[in-house]
């Protein structure tokens, strides 16, 4: 299952809208890095509004993807986490640490712009 990554001027937007297998998640991670590099984007917003399960594997992939994007020289924001997903992650002891998050897409884009400005 391919997740579309859209370019919007100097940033990228993507929304995980289907239940990903582990292989899909790894492919998504590689695609994000590839697109950041190829488009020379300054940052990416990853919307997870539609995800109703984020288990320890997916949490690790999201964490790592954000760190990798930063390592490349861009910024990453994860937005739209459902309340029940936040609750489950914290109960399991698997918070998304070191990742920038936002409540929804709009605030996610605002936060990304802020981070990009700070980096420059």
């Amino acid at each position: 299952m391919k997740i579309a990554i859209l370019k919007l001027r100097d940033i990228l937007l993507t929304s995980i809208h289907v239940d990903l297998t582990d292989e899909d998640a790894l492919e998504f991670q590689a695609d994000v890095l590839e697109m950041v590099k190829k488009t020379e984007a300054k940052g990416i917003v990853i919307d997870i509004t539609a995800m109703n399960v984020v288990d320890s594997f997916m949490a690790r992939i999201l964490n790592e993807t954000a760190s990798m994007v930063k390592t490349l020289g861009a910024e990453a924001v994860i937005c739209g986490m459902r309340p029940e997903v936040a609750l489950t992650l914290v109960e399991m002891g698997r918070e998304l640490t070191g990742v920038e998050t936002a409540v929804n897409l709009e605030q996610g884009v605002d936060k990304l712009r802020e981070l990009i400005k700070r980096r420059q």
């Binding site: 109703n52 399960v53 288990d55 320890s56 594997f57 459902r82 309340p83 029940e84 489950t88 399991m92």
Partner: peptide, 17 residues
């Protein structure tokens, strides 16, 4: 409710992996 649905789905995901 949604919280228990997420808890159960996540637990199943961990165990089956």
């Amino acid at each position: 409710g949604p919280a228990d649905q997420a808890r159960l789905a996540t637990a199943i995901s961990e165990l089956t992996r």
